[in-house]
Simulated assay, not measured.
Amino acid sequence: MMVNREIVIDLANYQKGLTASDYKKIGAKYAIVKTTEDTNYVNSEANLLINRSAAGGVKGFAFYHFARFHNDAKAISEAKYFISKTKGIVNLQKGALMILDAEISNMPTSSVIAFLKEIKKAGYKAGFYTYKYLLPNFNLKKIKPYMDFFWLAAYPLANGKAADKSPDFNYFPSADYVDLWQYTDNLLGYHVDGSISVTKNAIKLFNPSDAKSNKTPAKKSKSEWVKKNGTFTLGQSLEIHKSPHIESDSIAKLKKGDTIKFDATLQGPKRLWLRQPRSGGKYGYIVGKDKYGKLLGKLK
């Protein structure tokens, strides 16, 4: 049976600069939007991403949660947080597709199942996302009965290299149950992740655009990124993180006396984050002030 291939983009706050015109040029009809992470982060740009992409031609949405659990109890609490906070952002219909983003180490299969069961118990379709290189960490056959949708990432091209909308299926990841293949992190040079549908199931689960954004936008965090160029010389050894969360994965470890350039700051109640531009349009994040407001180096 022939499958009508569709391009699907996924959106986090990194894509908040995309315009409706950009989305029209990308030409995707479906999007997966990050709404939550752990039990302490809600994407304050989710309304903007949904509304702007809808204005640019996206007609169906799904939603994902970046997970940080390592046990069943934490998995259940993260699933409940995901559901509750996403309801505050969109008119979440029963049967909407809600996806677990599993890309950290030491995540048990039992906890993945606990998360997916919580999603299904609430009346939604449960999706599972991971990278091909992480598949050995999971028992996919055990997960399969609890997932309605499987989204797998494997990039034929180097990270950051622009890809078009026709991936080479000679590089398709050899794994079971795949509905959607994420094949690039830089679709058409827009620095947006691009996926392609593999089954009809991949598209039929997407929330229709008439249920997109609540009329009352989700309340924005008081903390917002401010564009500011400068340098930071470390007063102690620190890590550069993949996202501005103290428990997020480390990109690099720097020693006292090292200096980095930053292009934006995020000031919380006490903690200050600095954003470091990296190759391929990516960013790293380092703490400039700790949770007590103590400066951890020299800012210029």
Rank of each mutant, 00 (worst) to 15 (best):
K204Q: 12
K204F: 07
K204N: 12
K204G: 02
L205F: 13
F206T: 02
F206A: 02
F206N: 04
N207A: 11
P208F: 06
P208I: 03
S209I: 11
D210L: 14
D210G: 06
A211R: 09
K212Y: 15
K212P: 03
K212C: 07
K212V: 09
K212H: 09
S213C: 13
S213A: 15
N214T: 08
T216L: 14
P217N: 15
P217Y: 09
P217W: 09
P217L: 15
A218C: 06
A218M: 09
K219M: 14
K219L: 13
K220A: 15
K220F: 08
S221H: 15
S221M: 07
K222Y: 14
S223K: 10
E224R: 14
W225S: 11
W225M: 05
W225C: 09
V226P: 08
K227F: 15
K227E: 14
K228D: 09
K228A: 12
K228T: 14
K228F: 07
N229Q: 14
G230C: 12
G230M: 06
G230F: 08
G230P: 08
T231H: 11
T231D: 12
T233S: 09
T233L: 12
L234F: 11
L234A: 13
G235I: 12
G235Y: 06
G235H: 03
G235L: 07
G235K: 04
S237R: 12
S237C: 13
L238W: 09
L238S: 09
E239P: 02
E239R: 10
I240H: 01
K242V: 10
S243D: 05
P244F: 10
P244I: 08
H245S: 08
H245D: 15
H245W: 13
E247S: 11
D249V: 05
D249S: 14
S250H: 07
S250F: 11
I251G: 02
I251N: 06
A252Q: 09
A252D: 11
A252H: 04
A252C: 05
K253H: 14
L254I: 09
K255W: 03
K255I: 13
K256A: 15
K256H: 05
G257D: 10
D258S: 13
D258E: 14
T259S: 05
T259C: 08
I260Y: 02
K261P: 00
F262P: 04
F262G: 01
D263P: 05
D263M: 04
A264V: 01
A264S: 13
T265G: 02
T265D: 01
T265S: 05
T265A: 10
T265V: 12
T265L: 10
L266H: 01
L266W: 02
L266P: 00
L266G: 01
L266S: 03
Q267F: 01
Q267E: 12
G268D: 06
G268Q: 04
P269T: 01
P269Y: 03
K270T: 12
K270D: 13
L272Y: 00
L272M: 08
W273C: 00
W273Y: 04
W273I: 03
W273H: 00
L274G: 00
Q276S: 02
Q276V: 07
P277A: 07
S279V: 06
S279L: 08
S279E: 10
G280L: 08
G281D: 01
G281S: 07
K282R: 10
K282H: 04
K282D: 03
K282P: 03
Y283G: 00
Y283Q: 03
G284R: 00
G284W: 01
Y285W: 04
Y285P: 00
Y285A: 00
